Simulated assay, not measured.
Amino acid sequence: MTTIFDMPNTTPPTRDLESFNRQTANLTPKAHVDFGLWGILLGRMNSADLPDLAKAGVIGFKYFWGYAINKKTFQLTYNYRPGMDDDVIAPFSDGEVYEIFQNVAKTGKVMAIHGEDSSLIQTLTEQVRQTGRNDYNALLEGRPNLAEEVTVQMGLAFSRATGARLHVLHVTTAEAVDAIRRARAQGAPVSAETCPHYLFLSNEDYPKIGPVMKIYPPIKYKKDQQRLWQGISDGTITIISSDHAPHTPEEKNGDLWSIPAGMPGTETLAPLMLNAVNDGRLTLQKLTALLSENPARRFGIYPQKGSLQIGTDADLTIVDMEKETVIRAENLHSKSKITAYDGWHVKGIPVETIVRGETIMKDGEIVHKPCGKIVKPL
């Protein structure tokens, strides 16, 4: 990877101009690659800060639809249940979400959503938990395809009504793909992305992989996996991202209902997708668009990023399509040494990463001091 967008579920998240400047100062001396910052949407708590954030140069604004938020840290509450302590802000009402869309539309920035309906999840999860079940399919019954479908449909409707430029993050279901396809066919300013874990894993893999595989939105069924690939093929899904969400092995080892969701994904993203090219699932040209050109265009940093035009940043990932390796959790460079792909054989490996003309990675190891800079929409 040559540029990474920092999601606003850090501590503290990028929620106002002060935190934007603080995070920029924090990351700049550490970053080996260039980076952009997402701004978090906290409803009326930071609605007045959105114009300043937009002017400062956030990539876009993200709303974690369906999540409760800690009042003190503004961190996401992964497993919210009604009646939790007073430090938790409950998920917003539909009217409050609509107001968020209105406010983002005024900035002209992209509004990205994590699409899960909290009320539906709370009801269905409680029904399943009362049975005493603790298996992966029980988790899916508590967070079903419907939870994504209704949220995406509402997001599309709110986008249409307010003019907000909607981006649907980490799409997981056939129903969402179909809804987004219809909206795009009607000219809606909507884009969508998915992630490798939804393309290569399904509920059938849980017995072998275990709790590491718990991600929100959860990995669904084979039929959804197939429709996601169709969505990539027909242009409904235009971006593939990592949704990198590290946790410690200790945090991921426990009761399926209570452990946090997410796993590292940045380092395995390119090898998994290059392997898919070698398997004939897509072309190198298509993959280049999904990982580079399309996100650069959507988030306003093209052609400086995502192109090889004269005068733009010399960002290159050089790959060896014949090189083979086995993904090993212990070899990850993330502090979080967990992955659902431990032991996976892949063919097609990034062998050199060049950022603005400087070789940052060679043969899997970092070979350059930090030199990353913040990237802002043009």
Rank of each mutant, 00 (worst) to 15 (best):
H170C: 09
H170S: 12
E149Q: 12
I180R: 03
A185M: 13
A183L: 05
T131A: 07
E126G: 05
A183N: 02
T131M: 12
A179R: 00
R181M: 11
V150G: 01
F158W: 05
A185I: 10
T173S: 15
T162S: 11
R160L: 01
A147E: 02
E148T: 05
Q130R: 13
T173G: 10
P144D: 08
R133M: 15
R143K: 14
Q127W: 08
E141T: 11
L166Q: 02
G132R: 15
G142W: 05
N145A: 14
G163P: 01
V168G: 05
R165T: 07
Q130M: 13
V152R: 02
A174N: 10
T151M: 07
A147V: 08
L169P: 08
L166F: 02
D178W: 03
Q127V: 11
L169H: 08
V150F: 00
A164T: 06
Y136E: 15
Y136F: 15
R184Y: 07
R129H: 06
R182G: 07
A157P: 00
E175I: 01
A164M: 10
E148Q: 10
R165Q: 05
A138P: 07
Y136P: 15
Q127I: 11
R182C: 04
P144Y: 10
V152L: 06
A161C: 02
A174I: 10
N137F: 15
A179C: 07
T151N: 03
